[in-house]
């Protein structure tokens, strides 16, 4: 095949269609918004502060993170593990959940479930989804309060 023939063969109209990109589940709103609601449901009914949500979010990322939290609760430390890490995607999920009417924002960046949010939490539990995250959260007995979260976060600075 000569160079001329190749050019002729290539010189035809073509269309390019951009293909969708695979995005990790951890960055998908349809996963992070329901997970956020589970975190808010784990907090005391008076509202979940932004700091508490970042803390709980970190614990659900990996079981050892929750182990550390439970350990601190029992007044013992696992010094080589971080207590919390900030995750920007959680903030975006928070904004989205407030905008969608699943969470209501009180003053000073504290959040509470709306009736729609509560309904979605019920659906998530009934569907048996987020099993691992719910297992991790269940290891912390009762509801998380802002005061308790502050105590845990300040533990190492005393």
């Amino acid at each position: 095949m000569t160079a001329e023939t190749v050019r002729e063969q290539l010189d035809v109209p073509f269309c390019f269609e951009e293909q969708p990109d695979p995005v990790p589940a951890a960055l998908r709103p349809e996963r992070r918004v329901p997970l956020l609601l589970l975190l808010v449901a784990k907090c005391h009914g008076s509202g979940a502060s932004w700091k508490v949500l970042q803390l709980l979010n970190w614990t659900t990322r990996d079981a050892p993170n929750m182990e550390l939290l439970l350990s601190l609760q029992r007044h013992s430390d696992i010094p080589d593990r971080p207590i919390v890490r900030f995750e920007p995607a959680l903030d975006r999920a928070l904004d989205l959940a407030v905008g969608l009417g699943l969470l209501e924002q009180k003053t000073s960046r504290a959040f509470r479930l709306t009736p729609d949010g509560k309904a979605l939490v019920g659906e998530i539990e009934d569907a048996g989804t987020f099993e691992r995250e719910r297992e991790i959260l269940d290891r912390y007995s009762g509801k998380m309060t802002t005061a308790e979260a502050d105590r845990l976060l300040e533990w190492r600075r005393r």
Partner: peptide, 8 residues
């Protein structure tokens, strides 16, 4: 359109 990912 709402964001399809939380990439920012």
């Amino acid at each position: 359109s709402l964001p399809t990912s939380l990439l920012g």
